[in-house]
Design a protein around this nucleic acid. Structure first.
Lengths: 202, 202
DNA sequence: CGTGACTTTGACCAGTTGGTCAAATCAGGA
DNA sequence: TCCTGATTTGACCAACTGGTCAAAGTCACG
C-alpha cells in the first residue's frame, strides 16, 4: 500500500489511470459485472499492482462514486435564488444536458448504482443529495409563491430535469437506435428549452 | 430438457416460478451480476433443475426480454391516430406511468440492459422498437401539421415520456430518498398531466 | 399395479474471481 | 555510487461461477 504521505509522481499517474479504467469498466458492466483483471488490463497495469494502490475492487468503486457525487451535483448548486427564475432554471437544464453529453460514463456509473438499489451510496442520497434538493426546492417554492414561475410540484420538477437530461447518456444506445443518424444532442437542447419554457412561464 | 410437446402442469408451474425468480434477480443485479444459484434458491428449485428447464443462464434472460419487450411497447401501440390528440397522448403517459408503478422490476430489467449497451437486444431496438416509434411519430407529425397539438420534435417528445415515466421505477430509491414519506406515484400523475398539457396545447 | 416418460438431485468439473505474498526491480536522495 | 523505500510482478489460493451427468425418484396412464 502506498504511504499516506504526499503522493509521488508515479502514484498520481497510476491512481489516475486506474480510476479512468475503472470508470470505463464499472460504467459499462456495473459493480458485480466488472472484473479487476479487466480494469487492470485497460489501465495497462498488472492486477497485483492495482491492489497495491487500492485495497480492493470495492475501494476503487467507492473512490469513483465519492469523487463523482460532488461533481454531479454542481449544476444544481449553481442555481441562484437571486437570479431570474426562468433563466436560472434554463441554465440548470442546459448544464445538466451538457454533463450527459460530456460525461456519459459518469452518468451510467450512477445509473447502474441507483437502478440496482444504491447499495453503496444510499446514505449519501438521504444526506448530501436530499439536503441540497430540499434547499433548492424552497427557492423554487418561493419563486412560485411570488408568481414568477408557474406553480408545479417542485420535487417532480427536479426529477423531471434529472430524468430527461440523463436519459440521453444512460439510454444512449436506445436513443441512437431510434434516431438513426441524427445527433440527439443537436436537437435536445431546443426541445428542453421549449418544454420548460411552456411549463414554467406563469 | 423438457419435450417440445404441450407443457405438463409441472412444466408450466416451474417455468413460471423460474422466470419470476429470474426477473427478481436480473433486475436487481444485471445479467453478469446475477447468479444461477441465486435464481434457483429464490425459485425454490435446485440449480441442475433450473438448467433442465432452460439450457443456460442466458436463455432465461432472453426468455424474459423477449416476453417483456412486447408488453413494454403495448402502451404505445394503443395510441390511436383517430382519437383526440391531446387525450391520446395523455392516455399514453398515464399508461406508461402505471407500468412503472405496477411493473418496476420489468422496467429495471430493461434499464440494466440498455445502460450497459443493450448487448443482448440491440437488434430488437433497431427493428421492432424503431419501426413502431417511426409509425407513431408520423401520427404525431400529422397532428402537429394540422395544428391539433403544438409542434415539437416528435422523437424527443417520445423520449421524454419514456424517461419521465420510467424514472419512477428505475430510480425509485433516489426518488424516495429525496421525497421521504410522500408516495411519488400519488403526485406524479398530476405533474405529468400539467407538463404535457402545457407543452402540447397549441 | 406396472411401465415408460418426465422430473429432480448430489457429486462433480473446468474456468474465473478477488485477493495474497515473497521476491525482484526501480527511483532518487545522500 | 550506494542504499532505502517505493513499485512491480509471477505464482499462487480459496471461493465461486456456469454447466454436466448418471442415478434416483415421481408421475400419469393403460
Amino acid at each position: 500500500m502506498p504511504a499516506d504521505r504526499s503522493p509521488t509522481r508515479i502514484q498520481k499517474k497510476n491512481r489516475a489511470a486506474i480510476l479512468e479504467a475503472a470508470l470505463d469498466v464499472f460504467s459499462a458492466h456495473g459493480f458485480r459485472g466488472a472484473t479487476v483483471d479487466q480494469i487492470a488490463s485497460e489501465a495497462g497495469l498488472s492486477k497485483p499492482n492495482l491492489l497495491y494502490y487500492f485495497p480492493s475492487k470495492e475501494a476503487m468503486h467507492n473512490a469513483l462514486l465519492e469523487q463523482l457525487l460532488d461533481t454531479w451535483l454542481d449544476p444544481l448548486r449553481e442555481l441562484q435564488a437571486e437570479g431570474d427564475p426562468l433563466q436560472e432554471l434554463m441554465g440548470y437544464v442546459q448544464r445538466k444536458l451538457q454533463m450527459s453529453r460530456d460525461y456519459p460514463r459518469e452518468s451510467r456509473l450512477f445509473a447502474n448504482e441507483i437502478v440496482q438499489g444504491a447499495p453503496r451510496i444510499h446514505a449519501a442520497l438521504t444526506q448530501e443529495l436530499k439536503s441540497l434538493v430540499d434547499e433548492k426546492v424552497s427557492v423554487l417554492q418561493d419563486w412560485m409563491d411570488q408568481g414568477r414561475i408557474a406553480p408545479v410540484h417542485p420535487y417532480h420538477l427536479i426529477f423531471s430535469i434529472w430524468s430527461l437530461t440523463q436519459h440521453y447518456a444512460d439510454f444512449d444506445v436506445q436513443v441512437r437506435a431510434v434516431l438513426g443518424d441524427e445527433d440527439p444532442f443537436a436537437t435536445a437542447p431546443d426541445f428542453m428549452e421549449t418544454l420548460y419554457r411552456r411549463l414554467l412561464t406563469p
